[in-house]
């Protein structure tokens, strides 16, 4: 695997803008455990090894169970996730693979059953933010600590 540049060092201006976005997501009042699941799922789809390593460790520190984390990649076939978690994971998949399938009507409908309009927009921002980090992580092959 070819070594690429360190993005924090190369453009601190760009990275401080992205960190500001992440902080806005964290302040938006979303459930932190569900947020970790969403980040993990997007990172799995986008193939970001650094992100998966970091988000799974953070989730464990936040009290998440190893069994649930192990099941995130196949959540549709698991009984370990609540209905709001399943809605959020489906929305995450629809938006992360936007070009491939487009957000399915059902994924949006499921979100409206569990969340108000502000929460749906805030979850969407969270999904776009982790997708930004995935693009940095994979684009520049960020190495695991």
């Amino acid at each position: 695997m070819q070594k690429r540049i360190d993005y924090h060092q190369a453009s601190p201006e760009a990275m401080s803008a992205l960190i500001a976005l992440e902080l806005a997501v964290q302040r938006s009042g979303l459930d932190p455990r569900m947020l970790q699941l969403l980040k993990l799922r997007a990172s799995q789809i986008n193939g970001c090894a650094f992100c998966i390593d970091m988000e799974s460790a953070e989730a464990r520190r936040g009290g998440e169970s190893f069994r649930r984390l192990s099941a995130v990649a196949l959540w549709r076939d698991s009984v370990l996730f609540s209905a709001p978690e399943r809605a959020t994971l489906a929305w995450t998949e629809a938006l992360t693979q936007l070009g491939a399938a487009g957000p399915r009507e059902r994924a949006y409908d499921a979100m409206t059953h569990h969340f108000n309009a502000k929460q749906i927009a805030d979850w969407t921002l969270a999904i776009t933010s982790i997708n930004c980090w995935n693009r940095m992580g994979v684009g520049f092959r960020k190495t695991l600590l």
């Binding site: 760009a14 927009a121 997708n131």
Partner: peptide, 18 residues
């Protein structure tokens, strides 16, 4: 890095609009 952030940002707007 700046271009990567630009690409990430339009991808974010695309996710909202779509």
């Amino acid at each position: 890095v700046d271009l990567t952030l630009a690409i990430s940002t339009i991808n974010s707007w695309n996710r909202f609009a779509v």
